[in-house]
Structure formats: C-alpha cells, structure tokens
Amino acid sequence: MTLEDLGYTDDLEKQRQGLHPGSFGIGRVTQEHKDRYTISTESHELEGELIGNLRFSASSRNDFPAVGDWVAISEYDEGKALIHAILPRYSVLERQAVGKFGEKQIIACNIDYSIIVQSVNRDFSLNRLERYLTICHAAHISPIIVISKIDLAEKHEVKTLLEKLNHRIKAVPFIPLSNETHDGIEELKKYLYKGKTYCLLGSSGVGKSSLINSLSGESKMKIGEISDSVNRGKHITTHRELIPMVQGAILIDNPGMREVGITESYGGLENTFEKIYKLVRQCKFSDCQHTTEIGCAVKTALEKGEIDAAAFENFLKMEREKEHYESTIVEKRKKDKDFGKMIKQIKKDRKSNKY
C-alpha cells in the first residue's frame, strides 16, 4: 500500500515539506482510542502517541488528532511512533458534543464525500437526514444518501418513501439498495473514486457494517444478529476506523449516531435549505418571523405549497439551535476573557506585594 492509496496528495506533500521532512515520516490516523492512535504508513501500521508539547499546548480536544488526519511522526520503538504535528485539515466533519452544549466533537477529518445511510424500516427520518446534510454542507463535503434494507419493505412502500425524499431534498443523489440482494450496490460504486475519502454516517442498525462488507469485497466488519422485535441489527461499531475500499476509495466508519447537534454550521443550513433562504431574502422586512407579517415571501410560499411545511418547521428548529449555540460560544468566550483578566490582575498585584 502506498500513501496515495490512503489519500495522500501533492498539496499534503507541500505542507509536509515545511515540517523538516528529513526528520519526520508521514502517516494517516486510521483508528482513535482515547489517547492512543493507529497510524498507517506506506509500509506498516504503528501505534502512535502525542509528544508532550503537542498534548499540553492543545486548547481543546479538537486540537488532538482524529481519524482521517495526516500526521508527522518519528518511530522510536518497534511498531510505535510519536506524533509531532498534525498537517492542516482541508475538511472537518463535526457535530455538537453530546451532553456538552457549546462544545464540538470531531467526527472525522479530510473527508471528500459522506455516505448517509438510513433504512426503510423504522429508522427513516427526513428531519434527521436534513441534519446530516447540514453538517456535511458546513464542512464542504459532498453527501450521498443511501436508503438501505429495501428488501424488508414492499415495492410500493419503497416507492412512496423515495417520492417523499425526492420532494423534500434536492440536488443530492440518493440510492436505494439491499445488502442481502445486492440491488443498488453497483450504482453506489459509481460514486467511489480512487484516492477519495468517504465517511459513513447513520444510526445503529441501518446496515452500515453490511454495506462496508459489500463495498470492500470481503467480510471486514462483524455483523450484529437481527432482532426480531425491531427487525434490525444490533450496534457493533464502537470506534472510528479507516478502511480501504474497492476502486481505490477510502472509507471512515463511525459508531451509530442518532443525535446530530448543530454548531455554527456556516453555509450548512443555507445549502440544505437553499430554497427557504432565497425566500427569506425576499421578505418585506429583514426581521420577518414568517408568521403573520405582511409581505412575507415564506408564508406565501407555504400557503401555495411551494415549500414543504415539515421541512420549514425543521429549518426553524435547527436555526434556533444554531443561534443558541452561537450565543453560548460568545458567552463562554467572554467568561474566559474575564477570567484571564482576573488572573493577570492577581499576578500584577502579587508583584506589587499587595498579597
């Protein structure tokens, strides 16, 4: 395997040249387990850990390596390496950290495409799909929607579901498929490109592990047994992992995610709800709430059925969530600034022998 097989590019090589290339090797983080990392190089895999300076200079968890990162390394023992630097990321897929409002969690880095998987049985949710699309658009990652387990539904049910999807979500390819019958697998393979990195997103039990096996050409992932009560597999993936795929593509698998919290998402909501944003700009008043105002373009479009009412409700919910997140960040930064000023004053007073 070469570095190019892992997604290495000329741009990354130019960045590496600025890091004393004679002393550092290069590798890609393929697994992350708390403070330990699996790093793939062109010759072998290494167990990596951060040098002390990199660890203690980090201002947040996001300054640590994540799956998909390219890192400058030095080997110090058989099968072990020190991570000296993280090469600049060209994309960062992230969500709001679960249970930690105002904080981000990196899902994966240096991603080109995301494959968003939802199943026809029990899991399908257009609202959740729009959330996945928003975090992808915010990271400038091209999304592909996969509707899995079509063998578990009647043909007319699948058709109705796809019609709903087509009506509400535009300009995003979607592929219905079955890992059992392999219907749709070849169609999905048309979107796999050599050297490009893909991220697999979806809830637990939607068939992501089966899909990886179908796309990799071998049984790389353990498949959970099917539960009779909910008709879906049990949660298997517990960590993020980078996996070589057919046609030279690279895939990052993720644990199942049902919660997809929105952060600042600059450009994310605008791209996901492009039609709504165009209408918002046509409203008579800049502070229009889109309820009873005269000259509201959004309200007029809703009355005419030109935009989906459920999509608009989801847009409002996510917009409020984004605004709340942004206000929390501003508040946290002010508190940090005030705390910093207090520490400086204490140090100054001590020097003046006031303490």
Rank of each mutant, 00 (worst) to 15 (best):
K351V: 00
D336V: 01
S59H: 08
M1C: 05
F124S: 00
R333K: 14
Q96I: 00
G99D: 11
R240N: 15
G224K: 10
H239M: 13
K322Y: 00
E45C: 06
T300H: 07
N353V: 05
G79F: 01
K189W: 04
K34G: 12
E306N: 13
S119N: 07
I73Y: 11
L165T: 04
S229C: 01
E331F: 02
V230T: 15
S265W: 05
A171F: 05
K104N: 13
A138V: 08
Q15Y: 02
I250F: 01
E270Q: 14
Y266P: 09
D35G: 10
E326F: 00
F101N: 08
P21W: 08
I185Y: 01
V146D: 00
N179I: 02
H140C: 05
K34I: 03
A311E: 02
I169K: 04
P143T: 05
G205S: 05
D228K: 15
T38W: 05
K155R: 15
E94P: 07
K284F: 03
D287Y: 06
N271Y: 05
E303I: 02
I223L: 12
Q247W: 06
S327R: 12
P88Q: 07
E303Q: 08
P176C: 13
L3F: 02
Y193V: 08
L12V: 04
N213A: 07
K196C: 12
R232I: 00
R232F: 01
K220Q: 15
F312Q: 05
Q105I: 03
I236K: 11
V92W: 01
A97F: 03
G99Q: 14
N166A: 13
K196Q: 13
I343G: 02
H182I: 00
R122L: 03
I39P: 09
E13W: 05
Y113Q: 14
A138C: 08
L133P: 11
A311P: 07
I236E: 11
K344E: 13
L211T: 12
F273Y: 15
Q31V: 01
H290G: 03
Q96S: 14
T237G: 13
T134W: 03
V98Q: 15
L93V: 10
T38M: 11
G205E: 07
K34R: 10
K275M: 04
N254F: 02
I86F: 01
K337F: 10
T30E: 15
E306I: 00
R122A: 04
P65C: 07
E32I: 06
A310G: 04
K351M: 08
I115G: 06
L54F: 02
T2F: 05
Q247M: 14
E13M: 12
C288G: 03
E130H: 06
L201W: 12
Y191P: 01
R333S: 14
I329D: 10
S214A: 12
E264A: 09
M1R: 12
Y132L: 07
P65A: 09
Q118F: 07
Y198P: 09
A85Y: 08
V172S: 11
S74Y: 11
Y90F: 12
I185K: 08
E13Y: 05
D112W: 09
E42V: 00
H290Y: 02
